[in-house]
Simulated assay, not measured.
Amino acid sequence: MYARAVAATTIALLGTAALLLPTPGAQAAREPGERLPVIAHRGASAYAPENTLAAVDEAARLGIGWVENDVQRTKDGELVVIHDDSLQRTTDVEEIYPGRAPWKVKDFTAAEIARLDAGSWFGPGYAGTRVPTLQQYVNRVDLHHQKLLLEIKNPQLYPDIERQTLKLLGNEGWLDRQHLTGRLIVQSFSAASIRTVHELKPGVKTGLLGAPSVAELPGYATFTDQINPSYRAVSRGYVSAVHVFTGAHGRPLEVVTWTVDDADTARRVAGYGVDGVITNRPDVVRDALGEW
């Protein structure tokens, strides 16, 4: 009751009640018989080098239907899948290009990045693994019939990356009805970036990373479908407060939390009513949740 009262007051104060009426008793429920989605963070990144095709393959081997990745852009305009804005942590860029510190993704061409070893840091069995392009990545996800939670990383560094990402997704068949209704979500820490995605392609499901205050939710709900906070910021009350609001596609806002890697935390956040769990250890979380 308290969460609903706060939400209603917030809407009135912001003057958006006519656009965003909370749904009484709304919960972002799954379809009957559908298990709580477990999403492999950067692929199954506890078991294979993060954001590589090998990590996608490992998630598929484990039977995990969702993978998450990070998208950035090279100097010559290629979209690549890598988390950091620097190549230093997850490749041998210091060895191959020693004089080009701080080794930012945006300062290297796609051909230069394609030379880098993105696996040896993780283990000798992955030597020679490459940084995939987004095109390679989505095709591998499609090959395994998986679903994709795509994060636009550091959009402030890459003007118009939203339009470019959507164009590539469209070219690769990821903006058809099948993908839009259950296989694709685009998220970012940047509300402006997610708003842009929604404006360009209103059919795309979107998520805002972070834990905004309840007072901010009415504005975000006009262009996003999920609020995706760290598990450290999640509580039963916060999840309930988010669920009160109707998101951009006419359903209650969802909460997908990250990065949960142990059984106890997985069961705790599931008990709060979250709508998905992002994890480096998707098999551990899936087994902990059982039929949740």
Score class of each variant (00 low, 15 high):
Lys153Gln: 10
Tyr220Val: 02
Leu62Glu: 07
Arg115Ile: 03
Ala118Phe: 00
Asp261Phe: 10
Leu14Phe: 13
Gly128Trp: 04
Asp176Ile: 15
Ile11Phe: 12
Pro24Trp: 06
Arg183Val: 12
Ala101Phe: 12
Gly43Tyr: 13
Gly99Asn: 15
Gly33Trp: 11
Ala266Trp: 07
Leu166Asn: 10
Trp121Lys: 07
Phe223Thr: 03
Val56Ala: 08
Leu168Thr: 05
Leu62Cys: 07
Val285Asn: 02
Thr165Leu: 07
Thr165Val: 08
Leu208His: 10
Ala5Gln: 12
Val81Gly: 09
His41Ala: 03
Ile194Ala: 05
Gly173Tyr: 00
Gly170Arg: 11
Gln164Pro: 11
Arg140Pro: 02
Gly15Phe: 10
Phe108Ile: 03
Thr23Pro: 02
Thr133His: 06
Arg35Leu: 15
Gly33Ser: 10
His198Phe: 14
Lys75Pro: 00
Tyr272Ile: 06
Arg61Ile: 06
Glu58Cys: 08
Thr133Pro: 02
Val67Gln: 01
Leu150His: 08
Ala29Phe: 09
Glu58Asp: 12
Leu175Thr: 12
Lys104His: 02
Leu168Asn: 11
Glu78Ser: 14
Ala54Gly: 05
Leu289Pro: 06
Glu112Asn: 04
Gly237Asp: 15
Arg268Val: 04
Arg35Gln: 15
Asn280Arg: 04
Glu216Val: 03
Tyr97Glu: 14
Ala221Arg: 05
Glu68Tyr: 04
Val141Pro: 09
Ile161Asp: 08
Glu34Ser: 14
Ala114Asn: 05
Val269Pro: 02
Val234Lys: 07
Asn139Cys: 07
Pro49Thr: 00
Asp283Gly: 14
Tyr158Met: 10
Arg286Ser: 07
Val71Ile: 08
Pro22Tyr: 05
Gly219Phe: 15
Tyr220Pro: 03
Arg100His: 11
Arg268Leu: 11
Gln178Val: 14
Pro282Val: 15
Ala233Asn: 14
Glu199Trp: 09
Gly207Leu: 10
Arg61Met: 04
Thr279Arg: 01
Gly125Ala: 01
Ile227Phe: 04
Gly77Thr: 10
Ile152Asp: 00
Met1Gln: 15
Ala263Trp: 02
His145Gly: 11
Asp261Ala: 09
Pro124Cys: 01
Pro218Tyr: 08
Thr9Ile: 07
Tyr220Cys: 03
Leu200Phe: 13
Ala118Glu: 06
Trp292Thr: 14
Thr196Trp: 14
Asn51Ser: 06
Glu68Gly: 02
Lys205Asp: 13
Pro218Cys: 13
Arg195Phe: 05
Ile152Leu: 04
Ala17Val: 06
Ala101Lys: 13
Lys147Met: 09
Val214Gln: 15
Gly33Asp: 13
Lys106Gln: 13
Ala241Asp: 08
Val71Arg: 02
Pro132Ala: 05
Arg89Cys: 03
Leu116His: 02
Ser45Pro: 03
Val255Ala: 11
Trp174Glu: 12
Ala118Trp: 01
Thr224Asp: 03
Glu94Trp: 05
Ala101Ile: 08
Phe223Asp: 05
Glu34Gly: 11
Asp160Arg: 06
His41Arg: 04
Leu134Cys: 11
Pro24Lys: 15
Ala46Ile: 06
Ala221Pro: 02
His249Thr: 06
Leu134Val: 12
Glu50Cys: 04
Glu112Cys: 05
Ala3Trp: 12
Gly43Ser: 13
Val67Asp: 01
Gly173Phe: 00
Ser213Leu: 14
Gln146Tyr: 08
Val239Asp: 08
Thr265Ile: 01
Thr109Met: 06
Leu253Lys: 00
Ile185Gln: 07
Ile161Ser: 14
Ala28Glu: 00
